[in-house]
Design a protein around this nucleic acid. Structure first.
Lengths: 207, 207
DNA sequence: AACACGATTGACTCGTCAGTCAATCCCCCC
DNA sequence: GGGGGGATTGACTGACGAGTCAATCGTGTT
């Protein structure tokens, strides 16, 4: 016979998805485990059948997503035919699309982990740094190829780049930026244009 | 006779300063009010003599500091002799120096409020936006004067700029960036150089 | 049909902690 | 020098919520 009505892994998924919604809505610290169970339409105790603790639920959500992100960054980096700027464009695009596709998930990843310096951020520092290192490597290549200026360190440039992306996502999360297809595409362009091109007007030769 | 050994406003200050240290060390959500009282060397109940709730302590800390920041931004903006880039440099310098001077305070402001989309961030959105608006105005002036390119919106440029600063502070908070006088000064330059100059190498005429 | 065993349930325990309050202290003023 | 009133104390309360657990259910197996 086929698997049960809902298999173990489906149940687990169902709880994780519910947790994402609840964490996004109420925040990790201010929600109760029973909120997650209710949202998933499942008994309180079942959450503890699939996860050791409330923390483990968040950890799982974060790592699942972050691993995908790091993988994508590495994949993009491997495409030798792309310039550094094109690589940054592809990465920006992926992250913005991730938010477009599942804003709740990205909100949780960023607000509850990436920016939570006192709790989960510290726990997952290694994972976070892995992404930074990869980004820094891409920028370093761009510098070595003469495509980027090398007056700043690649590590810092990676921070500024990722900082701009995170700030844009935060803008959406806080409703400071309009959402909508056009806004998403525009912001992608803006991020790469700002970081690569800078704000300065180019010197106008002959004037 | 002079004022009492410790006046009311000194006591209040003493509690606020202790709270900054505790929030920075343990985070707002994971510390107890008794931790603040202990750190201040004061009885538990006294915290409630000066503040209505634990939340009010954080609110007070944030607003006190944020108001100073907005004021400085406005002050810098008023100095008509400065170029837009010089204004951004002055603001960056002020914020980085704020962190250098009192890392705990800036950590609390950023980690517990500015980036906490579910709790205090939302509460203080107006205050946060006031800073963004001011920054955006400075950049808009730069564009109008032909100093900056106007291919991106000033609002977005302000986000990228502030995002880079916050990310640098986060780097220090997470121990991802070296601290020390030289690092502080270098990062100031990097931030402005990255945002204004961009990563792209300038076209080399004659090559 | 009866068993075995993981899935599922939700009432319960136990610790924690924000906020209260009545008592005490201490300073200043008359 | 004594009385008034704000400052200070810390034990206490009440609520809340994470995690436990014994009981029940449902399905596949023999």
């Amino acid at each position: 016979m086929a698997t049960a009505r809902t298999s173990a892994s489906e149940r687990r998924r169902q709880i994780l998805d519910a947790a994402v919604r609840v964490f996004a809505r109420q925040g990790f610290h201010t929600c109760r485990v029973s909120d997650i169970a209710d949202e998933a339409g499942v008994a309180y105790g079942l959450v503890y059948h699939y996860f050791r603790s409330k923390d483990e639920v968040l950890d799982t959500i974060f790592l699942e997503r972050w691993d995908v992100m790091v993988e994508v960054i590495e994949e993009v980096d491997r495409r030798a035919e792309l310039t550094a700027r094109e690589k940054l464009t592809a990465i920006t695009s992926f992250i913005v699309d991730s938010y477009r596709h599942d804003p709740d998930l990205m909100k949780v990843v960023i607000v509850e982990v990436t920016r939570a310096a006192n709790t989960f951020g510290r726990t997952h520092l290694d994972a976070i740094n892995r992404a930074y290192d990869r980004l820094g490597a891409i920028i370093a290549q761009g510098m070595a190829a003469g495509e980027f200026r090398d007056t700043i360190t690649p590590q810092f440039a990676a921070m500024a780049f990722y900082g701009a992306i995170e700030q844009a996502l935060t803008g959406w999360i806080f409703d400071m930026l309009p959402t909508g297809e056009k806004s998403f595409e525009q912001v992608k362009l803006f991020i790469v244009d700002t970081i690569c091109g800078g704000l300065d007007a180019p010197p106008r030769p002959g004037v």
